[in-house]
Design a protein around this nucleic acid. Structure first.
Lengths: 155, 155
DNA sequence: TCTGGGATGTTATATTGTAACGTTGTTGGC
DNA sequence: GCCAACAACGTTACAATATAACATCCCAGA
């Protein structure tokens, strides 16, 4: 999860941002979509689709896989969340307006995930794609390892 | 798939290399594992586990999912193939001895995949992980877009 | 020869994701 | 206001991907 001082605050900020962007783009930020986005932000780490479904069914017993996946599609398509392909899991995006070229640092120990949007990496990737005469549309970069907290704890 | 002049040759090279490495490391490069590796190299692009299973069942009707997944685990663990997480598919690695930090360019049109081991990207990633006090163990970088051939073809 | 461990066989099931079609609800043009 | 069109959602069914658990086989080394 993205580091934050007050996570309640940070969930609210993310939802308000999504709300504002949807208004501007005339997208329908329905209760269902908002609920799924909230649940993703509430989890401290990447959330699995069927875990989200289970939670959703607590308030909406008739929810089905398609219910969740459709909301996820919407949220991904509009930049509010990312899919972490290596984990088959979903994580909130903290800057949906600059949502391209977000990279992830994922701790194998605590499962925390931090988004890192790094211009140097973006530049290096661009150089390489140009050398290879390749036009990049979408990039998945997931770096697994150990975060500082876990390294300190295990010492 | 990795670009090559003569693909038969390139399959053989890959298998011989795996054979040699297994001998050196005292690993058992069984017929089954060799067969799966060959099938992955024979496909011109990322191969799906259940497609491999279907092919395998043509010569080995009793093969089961576990048969394939266990061979894949061996091949991944020893650097002979990569899993392309975004596609749930598997692709041969053309330099198993320098198997870390391999990146992929994947064409959305022709599905061809090329391995690109780029020191600049590796360096940029390393700089970022150090800045973030993160110790990277494993990196997945999958760049989707359009290859030069497909761009030329569509003009 | 025995035996321990790795490889494989086998059965069952868990997990992840989508197709297809029906229903509801909202919105914009008349 | 009415209604046509379309997006969102409900529902059923199933496809695709992956693993657990336990049995059996086979070979290398004591």
């Amino acid at each position: 999860m993205i580091q934050c001082e007050d996570h309640e605050e940070c969930i609210l900020t993310a939802i308000e941002m999504a709300d504002r962007i949807c208004s501007q783009k005339q997208l329908k930020f329905t209760d269902l979509r908002k609920e799924i986005l909230r649940m993703i932000w509430e989890g401290h780490g990447p959330q699995k689709a069927y875990d989200l479904l289970n939670k959703l069914q607590q308030t909406n017993p008739s929810a089905k896989p398609a219910t969740v996946y459709r909301a996820l599609d919407f949220l991904i398509g509009n930049g509010f969340i990312h899919k972490v392909a290596s984990l088959n899991a979903f994580v909130g995006c903290s800057h949906p307006l600059k949502h391209q070229e977000c990279y992830f640092l994922i701790c194998d120990d605590c499962k925390n995930i931090s988004e890192c949007c790094d211009a140097n990496i973006t530049a290096a990737i661009q150089t390489t794609t140009i050398e290879n005469q390749f036009v990049a549309k979408n990039t998945t970069l997931e770096i697994f390892g150990h975060c500082n907290e876990c390294l300190n704890r295990s010492e």
